[in-house]
Amino acid sequence: MYNFEYQKASSAADAAAKIKAAGEDGKLMAGGMTLIPTLKQRLAQPSALVDLGGAKDLAGIKVEGNAVVIGAMTTHAAVAASKDVQGKIKALAGLAANIGDRQVRHRGTIGGSIANNDPAADYPAAVLALGATIVTNQRKIAADDFFKGMFETALQPGEIITAVSFPVPEKAGYVKFPNPASRYAVVGVFVAKTGGGVRVGVTGAGNSGVFRAHKMEEALSKDFSAKAIEGMHPPADAMNADIHASAEYRAHLVGVMAKRAIAAAG
């Protein structure tokens, strides 16, 4: 780890001021589950770290109208345990409960996960499929406009995610095929049915990050059943490949996980 200046923000506004003052080489830190290993391996050299851990206004879960609003600093464990999330969007609580391991779930946050946009992270699939809105200290960003390929998002330098607002669906299901080593998603499919139709978010699989499976969405909008997408899967050449899963296998798994997500949605 290289040396850096450590600053603890007391609120979202304080964090915004501190990160602005830190300039180009400043970095926000949430749970640190991605950032700290990066620092330890000397892959990043921020001049200052602004720790969001003390910003109480960034954590917590509220039900607002027909939406569940989750503060950026809410940990995966808190989302998994929340009665509100369990009651309104059970699939989202289940997703959070299966992220990484116990230690990671008690440190990692929804804001950190989404800002990082790891192509194998779980939350992005839910954010896309549920048509969530990402709330920052500057604006509101629709899910469809937020994720920009692997590790890239619409966030501007210094912009802070404050919350994610999830509309409550009629039905939703998430099933992932975990990487046996890291437990990240080799393939994860989130299926959500709302008044507006069906959306399918796929993570882990695509070679340019999280994506929506539009053909499946069309088929499911007509008939929300596993049968409706039997045999459907994205083309292998749009898939990622690594030592754990070939592109063909990933494409196949998208189909299998989608069917299982529908079954899980009930």
Partner: peptide, 23 residues
């Protein structure tokens, strides 16, 4: 079922951490 050490054709270690080497 799980463990394997993989080198690519250039001799780079593909399983250099627990993110890829499955214990």
């Amino acid at each position: 079922l799980l463990e394997t050490c993989v080198y690519d054709k250039d001799g780079q270690l593909q399983t250099g951490s627990y993110m890829d080497y499955t214990m």
